[in-house]
């Protein structure tokens, strides 16, 4: 049961991400990537990381993908854009990806270090309670710094668009 779930979710993730790359219409690409994110969230749930699965769906499906779709509709560029013209560049790109995958798979295949399973598995490591304690004790300063990051990115976005208005 678990095996079937894992392999079907990974096949869905790989297939939708491939479709995302090769589809000509940007709108469909965003929707395919959304399906890929949902299957990755399913893998998070299978790994007992419920909090991250929920946050993943909220942040990616709820915020980022909606932002992408909004920009695509706003720019009115749902017309198809071709993949690269040159066949040579296309072949080189695919070859680079395949070679990178091959290299990493071979290097992981040769590694024995993470082969054994843990003896004791903590069941509630991914729950919001445990993760909240970790986040607010060990990682309190980085957690506060992310708010500064958000504010600075927000100010940056506002400044980007304000300049444009003043120029016109």
């Amino acid at each position: 049961m678990t095996e079937i779930l894992f392999y079907s979710l990974s096949i869905i993730a790989i297939a939708t991400s491939l479709l995302m790359i090769f589809h000509k219409n940007a709108m469909y690409s965003v929707l395919f990537l959304l399906a890929c994110f949902f299957s990755i969230a399913g893998l998070f749930v299978m790994l007992n990381a419920q909090f991250l699965a929920v946050v993943h769906i909220i942040v990616y499906a709820g915020a980022i993908m909606v932002l992408f779709l909004y920009v695509i509709m706003f720019l009115n560029m749902s017309t198809p854009i071709t993949i690269r013209k040159s066949k040579l560049v296309m072949f080189a790109a695919v070859l680079t990806g395949l070679m990178m995958a091959f290299l990493l798979v071979v290097s992981v295949w040769q590694t024995q270090a993470f082969g054994q399973h843990p003896e004791i598995v903590d069941q509630n490591i991914g729950l919001a309670k445990t993760l909240g304690k970790v986040l607010f004790n060990e990682y309190l300063i980085p957690f506060e710094l992310t708010s500064i990051l958000f504010i600075s990115s927000m100010v940056g976005v506002v400044i980007f668009n304000k300049k444009e208005v003043e120029d016109e």
Binding site: I14, I21, I72, T96, A101
Partner: peptide
């Protein structure tokens, strides 16, 4: 690894900035 390589391929392959 496969998902990461698909991402690298997408960056190299496509001209559309959104992709």
């Amino acid at each position: 690894i496969i998902l990461f390589s698909i991402g690298v391929m997408g960056v190299l392959l496509r001209r559309n900035m959104i992709i």
